[in-house]
Amino acid sequence: MEDAGVGWIAAIIIGGIAGWLAEIFMKSDTGILMNILLGVVGAVIANAILGLFGVSLGGWLGYLIAGFIGACILIAAGRAIRR
């Protein structure tokens, strides 16, 4: 998070927005706390995966994009495990 120039408060806000967007995109039904968790953890996971390919997303917009991608991955993985 600090590498992206995003503090903890901003990470929670951006993570919540990213999780909410992923919830709408994936048509899942999660609450606000789960949206925040999905967005923040998803951003960390997506940045790690994208880092393997040499892609670096920085700043608020990059954190939002990474959070959205990661949250979608986490929602898909959760659905696959439940089935």
Rank of each mutant, 00 (worst) to 15 (best):
M1P: 02
E2F: 09
E2W: 09
E2R: 10
E2H: 05
D3T: 03
A4H: 05
A4R: 06
V6P: 02
V6N: 05
G7P: 04
G7I: 06
W8R: 10
W8E: 04
I9W: 12
I9S: 11
I9M: 12
A10T: 14
A10M: 13
I12Y: 06
I12E: 03
I14M: 06
I14N: 04
I14K: 01
G15W: 01
G16D: 05
I17T: 03
A18S: 14
A18N: 07
A18H: 09
G19N: 02
A22N: 03
A22T: 04
E23P: 00
I24P: 00
F25A: 13
F25I: 14
K27S: 13
K27H: 12
S28I: 12
S28M: 07
D29Q: 08
D29R: 08
T30C: 06
G31I: 08
I32H: 09
L33H: 06
N35A: 13
I36V: 15
L37M: 13
L37G: 13
L38I: 01
G39P: 07
G39T: 03
V40G: 02
G42L: 01
G42F: 00
V44W: 12
A46N: 09
A46D: 08
N47K: 08
N47T: 06
N47L: 03
A48N: 03
A48G: 06
I49G: 01
L50S: 04
G51I: 13
G51C: 05
G51D: 06
G51Q: 03
G51P: 06
F53D: 03
G54P: 04
V55R: 01
V55C: 04
V55Y: 04
S56Q: 14
L57R: 09
L57T: 04
W60V: 15
W60C: 03
G62T: 01
G62C: 02
Y63L: 05
L64E: 04
I65T: 06
I65C: 02
A66H: 07
G67F: 05
F68I: 15
I69K: 00
I69E: 01
G70F: 02
G70H: 02
C72W: 14
C72F: 12
C72L: 15
I73T: 02
L74H: 00
A77Q: 07
A77F: 11
G78Y: 05
G78W: 02
G78E: 11
G78F: 03
R79W: 11
I81T: 01
R82C: 07
R82M: 14
R82F: 12
R83E: 13
